[in-house]
């Protein structure tokens, strides 16, 4: 027994070489993934001249907070931040209230209409009315240029519904339901007092998915909102990062007044804006990540 074990532990030179190759490849993959993000952070606080001349590689050089000062004094970013926070918080609350009870109801095996209803929901994942009918419908019901367009149309994400339903189907034992029924609890009481407290993990997953979805939403603002003071952060970001629109302090602008000089500062502001706008998601990341993965795993259980 011992000798067979020892033989299994023995690694051929080929295996060792293979492991080394895997390790090097993965180290490279991790570097390529993380370095651009790291570079944005150090470039946002380095002297723009040094960044542009290629002196900044691994550590910030010639610390300069000019970019952040500009960002902090720019009204558009604060308005965008405030709007996005509002849409994210209200939107996610509505998402949860719509998705979770529906997922629970669809998980009950004795519920006769659950098959056709699942089809009713799932069909919308693969077929939709398209952009223009959607736009005209929103126009008719008054959602154009209205903050609720960020919240109501996306109230239910079918993918999240399926994940939550799979969780309830697989993780709430039928015996629990039986026992509660014997104790005189109806379905609503069972859902509120037993199922919900047992599903904290899935509630976190779904909530996080919705939070990120709202935070990163660019499309809604682009197509359905006209007033700039209602625009979310992503639209403001587009104007600064991609359309190169000028900053309050005069820095930036595609054909900036000072030519190369203006461009340097515009770039530093861009790095700073990326950091400021992505920070909330990245700060949450370490503690979110175990939930995010859980969501994918539950979703992969075919229901």
């Amino acid at each position: 027994m011992l000798s067979t074990l020892a033989r299994h532990r023995y690694r051929t030179p080929g295996d060792v070489a293979f492991s080394a190759l895997v390790a090097i490849t993965l180290a490279l993959v991790v570097f390529v993934t993380l370095y651009p993000i790291y570079f944005v952070v150090i470039a946002s606080m380095s002297s723009p001249q040094l960044v542009q001349s290629g002196a900044v590689w691994f550590l910030p050089q010639g610390i300069s907070w000019f970019g952040y000062e500009q960002i902090l004094s720019d009204q558009r970013i604060w308005t965008g931040y405030r709007n996005t926070l509002l849409y994210t918080v209200v939107g996610t609350a509505v998402n949860m209230l719509v998705t979770i009870p529906a997922a629970y109801a669809l998980s009950r095996r004795e519920f006769v209409a659950r098959k056709p209803l699942m089809f009713f929901f799932a069909f919308t994942m693969f077929f939709n009315g398209g952009l223009i009918p959607t736009y005209l419908l929103y126009k008719e019901i008054g959602l154009l240029n209205n903050m609720w367009v960020f919240i109501l149309p996306t109230a239910l994400n079918v993918y999240n519904l399926i994940i939550a339903r799979a969780f309830y189907e697989n993780s709430i034992p039928e015996e629990l339901h039986e026992a509660a029924r014997l104790d005189g609890a109806n379905d609503f009481q069972f859902f509120a007092l037993v199922a919900l407290p047992l599903s904290k993990a899935i509630l976190s997953v779904i909530m996080l998915y919705y939070l990120v979805q709202h935070w990163n939403d660019f499309f809604t603002g682009l197509v359905f909102i006209r007033d700039y003071d209602k625009q979310p952060l992503q639209i403001v970001l587009r104007d600064i990062l991609i359309s190169n629109s000028a900053f309050a302090g005069g820095a930036g602008g595609a054909g900036g007044t000072g030519g190369g000089y203006g461009q340097q500062y515009a770039d530093q502001i861009k790095y700073g804006v990326i950091v400021v706008s992505t920070l909330p998601v990245v700060i949450l990341y370490p503690f979110l990540q175990k939930y995010f993965e859980k969501g994918v795993m539950i979703g992969s259980v075919k229901g």
């Binding site: 929901f121 939709n128 398209g130 959607t134 109230a155 239910l156």
Partner: peptide
Amino acid sequence: MLLPAITFTALFAYGPMYGIQLA
């Protein structure tokens, strides 16, 4: 419990599908 989900899907997913006739 399904009512909000059904309403939103009917209005915002099937509503535009009804509008496809515009094509």
